[in-house]
Write a protein that binds this DNA or RNA. Sequence first.
DNA 1: GTGAAAGCGCTAACAC
DNA 2: GTGTTAGCGCTTTCAC
Lengths: 334, 334
Amino acid sequence: MVTLKQLAKELNVSISTVSKALNNSEEIGEDTVRRVKELAELYNYKPNKVALSLKSNKTKTIGVIIPNILNRFLAKVLFGIEREANKNGYNIITCISNESLEKEKESLQLLANGSVDGFILSVAAETQIKNEIEHFKKTISQGLPIVMFDRVAHDVLCDKVIVDDFDATYDATKSLILEKRKKIAFISNINDLSVGKLRERGYNKVILENSHLEPLVLKITKKDDHQKKIKSFFKKNKGIDAVIAADTSSGIISINTAINLGLKVPKDISIIGFASKSDSNHTIPKLTTIRQHAKEIGENAAQLLISRMHFATKNDDIKTKIIKTTLVKNKSTL
Amino acid sequence: MVTLKQLAKELNVSISTVSKALNNSEEIGEDTVRRVKELAELYNYKPNKVALSLKSNKTKTIGVIIPNILNRFLAKVLFGIEREANKNGYNIITCISNESLEKEKESLQLLANGSVDGFILSVAAETQIKNEIEHFKKTISQGLPIVMFDRVAHDVLCDKVIVDDFDATYDATKSLILEKRKKIAFISNINDLSVGKLRERGYNKVILENSHLEPLVLKITKKDDHQKKIKSFFKKNKGIDAVIAADTSSGIISINTAINLGLKVPKDISIIGFASKSDSNHTIPKLTTIRQHAKEIGENAAQLLISRMHFATKNDDIKTKIIKTTLVKNKSTL
DNA sequence: GTGAAAGCGCTAACAC
DNA sequence: GTGTTAGCGCTTTCAC
């Protein structure tokens, strides 16, 4: 990489002259400015990012900690974050916690050495299970702002971007009642997560409000054979005529299992799942989905973080932004 | 963040003493070392990454440019890269080119200002279509090594990690002949990509070698309605008894479409697709898949880059590593 | 209009 | 055994 020093030497001027010329300082003579800029252009000079960071004590970099990159929703949020960050001149350093508390702590620690100006993260499953939050608090107290999205730690004072999980599931379940469904099941593969619990509660509320309904819940764990579990659940509970799936896989597998068991979708059974557009294209009929607007969540998280970093506002105006889901009717419901 | 300066002041010693003590220099007295370390511990001192980078002219950061983070394969490669990089003390800055040449160029340029020590990337679709490679060459000539994976630009001299796309498709297609399939179709949604073309060629070779077979190829573009295209293809070409799908979506949709049309899978029709394990779980029967070992690809790419950065080897020992696929037999084939 | 010098945080060669 | 100094690349204040 070419440095100011080299340009200065070649032009027989001082380093500061070159610096000023390139930054369009009024001080420098028109002629000099032109000469400097030409040479800089020629050598494809770019100010060294590291030096700028050291000087300004800002890295223009955001640390993003994602529990699982293979999760479409999380990947899409990452996409949104990246785009919004880029738009504002920020890069993102991505760490994948792989749902592990240890890795999450490590990443936070490692990047808190001046590598990033702040964090955007979704809490790892293990962290939510063990309910640990000290590492978040410590990071914040070091002066590095955090924005949490989707899976958040409520007891940590920081900006958050979440989905209206409770309402979304409540509304979706109610829509099944409007279809005259009588035996509505809730299937979840994310019961450990805060969002999974919220979704279950939304479902339960509808059940409680409608005395003719019985709760019918299947909780699947990562170790289970997802397909088998759902199949035997369907077989054991004859007459299920609707499913709310808390996660994408459960939705897709439910629809396929129903078809496999000879049921007509949506005539015999309606299925609604949290999923993205491309996921809903992977079934026939297409899955009616609760869309979480992942990209928007990412964009909002980035905006929140960036404005907090710019204005270093006080702790007392913590924001929680709720991104409303949309129920997209496809062919798996009436 | 605490700095050496502050520690030095508080301990009434010089900055360099503190630095040496923390780096276990022999020069410093046992007692001093202990005092320094205690205070550093207390204040949770971490050497400023930016200052270290400026000094060493190394950022210990890898720039990763991914065309599309929603692609499971690419996401999984990213996962592999991140893990291997972390293991070696590197962080990754992720840029998403979104298949755009412009964004790819931009990311490369932007990070070549000292933000990263090297790049790992998969070439954007637009770049492959327009066959542009100057930006890669320029980056390399600036002293920043590049490792390309999966979608590579063959004319760029750099390390590469690829999949045996041709052989994999060839072998998979042959396996369908062993099942006595007579009308084998090739369906692809990635025909613009280098890998898509290789896969088609592997399929074509088998067709050519077996005179009783006719080529039957469906190329889908991003704008098409994927489900409709495949459905009408099946209807128009009665009697298709096997499908090789070049991409995950085509595989999954093929299987569902076949079932939807009343065919028995795999009795009436066999289907093989490039896909990951979790994808293959999303169909009933489970999709027989060509696994690309994405994580391994990522790990290899990271290793290649890191060793090149460490040993700054000459241009004359460029490596291309081929990660062999595995055909995983599931229930969508006999 | 141009240049010298300080300083961001750190390491390391070189005094003492 | 400890301290001084220079320097990584840059910006910016202050001299001239």
